[in-house]
């Protein structure tokens, strides 16, 4: 019975099937919002209001010809999309959507899972770097270099800003952090600054405008994904969508009080809260233009990192004040 349950966890909910459906829905939501911000229609014809468009795109890409460059590292080149998808799907299992119980923690909810989560969210960046590097294309190489350069910019502010709610809650376990803020909703406001810093950093992590520098199409064609096509590109796109869900879920858990302790209400609030976070991500995407890679680094070290430290200071003061 326990084996079956684990299988259901891994494959149906909240595993691959749920992730696939929800992440394609999120892509549709993001595309539709982005289009409506720009006074366009967005996907319209596949399914009701184009809701099936990302799934159609996925299957279309799956059916397309798959080309591996002659001079690429073939093994690495082919394995990376699957690795990337596996990593972000694993990260999804850590989110306290179903493993909310504080008394009987399941094997994916443990003290320190926040750190594991951040670690798992850092890995896709290296996957992108390796993807660009292993395809030996000039544009991919430039893209890969940009991925790493950008990483030095946004990673530290992201960690710092996720740290501050954890310090205030006094726990490294996401379920506990969420429960802490559910019990004291007013304290969410203390972390408002960190929430916005984290939003910007997540935007950079997901490589969306203004940080879509590694695959800026007008500069370096497809960037890291220039040589990818067919199934591998489909998996990469799915991976990006899943990463968006997971990152939004992380922000919702840490900053917005997580998901109340009941599987069904938890699911509904998970969807609502991630969509809320993704709304902001789309808004940032629509509001700004792409900046240069040197501007990313200077921006995050000049503004984001000091602000994150300031937030930490505030949190420590508030913590002292409460206790």
């Amino acid at each position: 019975m326990a084996t079956l349950k684990t299988f259901i966890y891994l494959i149906v909910y909240p595993g691959l099937l749920f992730l696939f459906i929800y992440s394609t829905f999120v892509e549709w939501y993001d595309r539709k919002l982005y289009a409506r911000f720009q006074n366009r229609m967005g996907p319209t014809h596949t399914g009701k209001a184009g809701i099936l468009q990302p799934i159609a795109d996925f299957f279309k890409l799956m059916a397309k010809e798959d080309i591996t460059p002659e001079r690429a590292d073939k093994g690495l080149f082919s394995a990376l999309p699957a690795f990337g998808l596996a990593i972000v799907s694993t990260a999804m299992l850590l989110l306290p959507v179903w493993n909310y119980s504080l008394e009987k923690p399941s094997f994916t909810s443990f003290n320190g899972d926040l750190i594991v989560m951040l670690y798992l969210l850092s890995l896709p960046t290296f996957i992108f770097f390796l993807a660009g590097w292993s395809s030996t294309n000039l544009f991919s190489t430039v893209g890969a270099a940009r991925v790493l350069t950008m990483l030095f910019g946004y990673e530290v502010p992201l960690f710092l800003s996720v740290l501050s709610p954890a310090i205030l809650a006094g726990s490294w376990r996401m379920a506990e952090i969420a429960a802490f803020y559910r019990a004291r909703p007013l304290l969410i406001l203390v972390n408002l600054l960190a929430f916005f810093i984290a939003l910007i950093c997540i935007q950079a992590k997901l490589e969306r405008t203004p940080f879509d520098i590694p695959h800026a199409e007008t500069e370096i064609v497809g960037g890291t994904f220039t040589e990818y096509s067919g199934k591998k590109l489909a998996l990469f796109r799915l991976m990006m969508d899943v990463e968006m869900v997971v990152a939004a879920g992380l922000l919702a858990t840490v900053f917005l009080g997580g998901f109340p302790a009941n599987p069904w209400i938890g699911l509904v609030s998970f969807i609502l809260k991630t969509l809320f976070v993704i709304f902001f991500l789309s808004l940032i995407r629509a509001t700004t233009s792409r900046i240069r890679v040197d501007q990313v680094v200077s921006f995050s070290w000049k503004y984001l990192a000091p602000l994150a430290v300031l937030q930490l200071l505030i949190v420590i003061l508030v913590k002292g004040f409460i206790s």
Binding site: Q38, N39, R40, A216, T218, A286, S289
Partner: peptide
């Protein structure tokens, strides 16, 4: 110019 700078919203509005 908006599109080349990755500012697609600006591009959509001016072209509208």
């Amino acid at each position: 110019a908006g599109h080349e700078a990755g500012f697609d919203s600006f591009f959509m509005y001016t072209w509208r």
